[in-house]
Design a protein around this nucleic acid. Structure first.
Lengths: 228, 228
DNA sequence: TTCTCTTAAATTGGATACAATTTATAATTT
DNA sequence: AAATTATAAATTGTATCCAATTTAAGAGAA
């Protein structure tokens, strides 16, 4: 399986004397998927019991997750899942455009037709498969185009941004309207990549991400206006 | 004092029942400044003794610093200061261009003439003052232009990139050749900002950062070719 | 000498114990 | 009843203890 960005869905069952790392992965997934709700307080004892360990590894994990900005840590008070808000969502998508177009630009001189073909195959699968698997495949598609740039830090940064974006996505229904656009965008993007047309490819990608961000923002601002 | 990006030089003496955070700040500064050398191993006992505390807060701090990619943590083995290499340096500067031009673009519609004037004052001071203070003032200058964008996450990201860049800078002499360029670039940048000329401003900033990266890369590749 | 194996020291990982702080509860006063 | 204070419970922070693992040292064999 091709390495994808985004931390969610990683395999992290083997814990060879490293409980903390295991907890980091589990808790990160729980936060990204929405299992742990924004603002929810995290008790060290409860987590330790839940994962059959002591508070020490839990505390280490919380420190790491705070550095990832997934939780907030207040001295002597405790930890809470980082809250979500629309303005941050906008920022995340601005940063995604910036980071992902950079990755794509750096990929274009390196990427092989075979690698583009692999991305095409993923898109073919997206067209066939049901919505449940869309998220994972969509990530794989973008990742396939970014990986050839070989910039590990940049790819990690993009993964982190996508993790946060996923937190917001977890509050929507799976079939958010932009999915229709997505497919034609992807085809056009693949075509531009095959032609190694940098400005065209980055323009498509920019619009693609911005549209998704707009749709998500609109959906959530409507939803949060009424409910909360 | 205006808030600057870059974690080094923060005030973190008050430790109100939060040793770990204190250690995070101290160790981060030590790594950024080069006091802790790349590749150096970090022993929990040694750090605990050095900072008059126990190993628990140390371990928490190490987890946080690993999440910041400033150290590497190998299970059951230990922690080492993250190594430096030229290819990562290039990546850092590519990311800086991307992130800082974004911040500048987002700032331009928001920034007031008074804020630009404040940046100009900082540049005036740079022209007057000795090289020792250049680094700090240079950060303040750029920060003054980015802050008005109001994107906290983006500013934090830029701060992190600058922290890593500082690690490389710590291996150079203070008067690296690009400093001459720096001043004229800064004046031109200020002028473009006053005119709210986005494309001109981003072009200047891009060249400014790229030049600095090139100079640094050349200096270090020469240096590391011969010595290590 | 060099290699391998064995053993001891050093180091990390995890659990427990206790102190410090915060939060919740109950009593008291107005 | 509402606000205030005092007390108890819950929670976090730090230190210490022990187990597990790794690293270093040394003995013995090729």
């Amino acid at each position: 399986m091709a390495q994808e960005f985004g931390a969610s869905g990683r395999d992290h069952s083997p814990r060879t004397g490293d409980q903390a790392q295991h907890l980091i992965n589990e808790l990160r997934d729980a936060i990204i998927s929405g299992t742990l709700a924004p603002g929810e307080t995290l008790r060290q004892d409860a987590i330790a019991e839940r994962y059959k360990t002591s508070r020490m590894p839990v505390r280490e994990a919380l420190r790491a997750l705070e550095a990832e900005a997934l939780i907030q840590l207040v001295p002597n008070k405790g930890a809470t899942v980082a809250p979500l808000d629309i303005s941050e969502l906008q920022e995340i998508y601005e940063m995604r455009v910036s980071a992902e177009t950079l990755a794509l630009r750096l990929s274009l001189p390196e990427i092989s037709n075979a690698q583009i073909d692999r991305a095409t195959k993923i898109q073919d699968e997206i067209d066939r498969v049901d919505l449940e698997k869309f998220g994972k495949l969509n990530k794989a598609f973008h990742s396939a185009l970014y990986q050839p740039c070989g910039r590990k830090r940049l790819l990690g940064h993009i993964a982190g941004l996508n993790d946060v974006a996923d937190r917001y996505l977890s509050f929507t229904v799976k079939a958010l309207s932009y999915m229709e656009r997505s497919n034609s965008d992807h085809r056009a993007l693949l075509d531009a990549c095959l032609r190694r047309d940098e400005s065209e490819a980055t323009a498509i990608l920019t619009a693609h991400i911005e549209d998704a961000g707009q749709a998500l923002q609109k959906y959530l601002s409507d939803k949060w206006q009424h409910s909360s």
